[in-house]
Simulated scan of single mutants.
Amino acid sequence: MTASWPPGVPLSTWLVIAGLGAFHGINPAMGWLFAVALGLHRRSRQAVLLALPPIALGHALSIAIMATSVFTLSTFIDSRYIRIASGCALIAWGVYHLRYGHRHRVRVGMMTGFTGLVVWSFLMASAHGAGLMLTPALIPLCQTAATGLTGPLLASLAAVGLHTLATLVVTGTVAMLVYEWLGVGVLRRGWINFDRVWLCGLFGTGAWLIAAA
Rank of each mutant, 00 (worst) to 15 (best):
A3T: 12
V186H: 07
M124H: 02
I65Y: 03
A67W: 09
A159I: 10
L73S: 08
H163E: 01
R189F: 11
I55M: 14
V197A: 12
W181K: 15
V169F: 11
L57R: 04
T2A: 13
L177W: 12
P28A: 09
G116Y: 13
T2F: 10
M110Y: 02
S62L: 00
A56T: 03
G94P: 03
L57E: 01
V70Q: 02
A213K: 15
G94K: 14
V70H: 02
T72E: 04
W191V: 03
L182E: 02
A56E: 06
G204N: 07
V169A: 08
S69W: 11
A22M: 13
A29L: 07
M111S: 14
Q46H: 11
A207V: 10
Y81W: 15
L168K: 14
A212W: 13
I77V: 14
P136E: 06
D195T: 10
R189V: 05
L168H: 11
T13V: 12
I84L: 15
I192R: 12
V174Q: 03
P6Y: 14
L149E: 15
I65F: 06
Y96V: 01
W14R: 02
L168E: 04
V160K: 09
L157R: 08
L33D: 04
S12N: 13
I210N: 04
S12E: 15
L138P: 01
A60T: 03
A35Y: 05
M176I: 06
H102S: 11
A175H: 01
L165M: 13
G161W: 02
L20D: 07
V106C: 07
I192M: 08
V169R: 11
R83K: 10
L11K: 08
V9R: 09
G190Q: 05
L33E: 07
V184K: 14
R105N: 09
I55L: 15
L132N: 01
L162S: 10
H97V: 08
F34W: 11
R99T: 05
L162W: 13
G109I: 00
I91R: 06
C200F: 13
R105Y: 05
A213F: 13
L157Q: 05
A212P: 03
F122C: 00
A213M: 12
T13K: 09
W14G: 01
R105P: 00
V9S: 09
A146H: 08
F23V: 06
V160R: 10
D78I: 00
W32H: 08
P53K: 14
T72R: 13
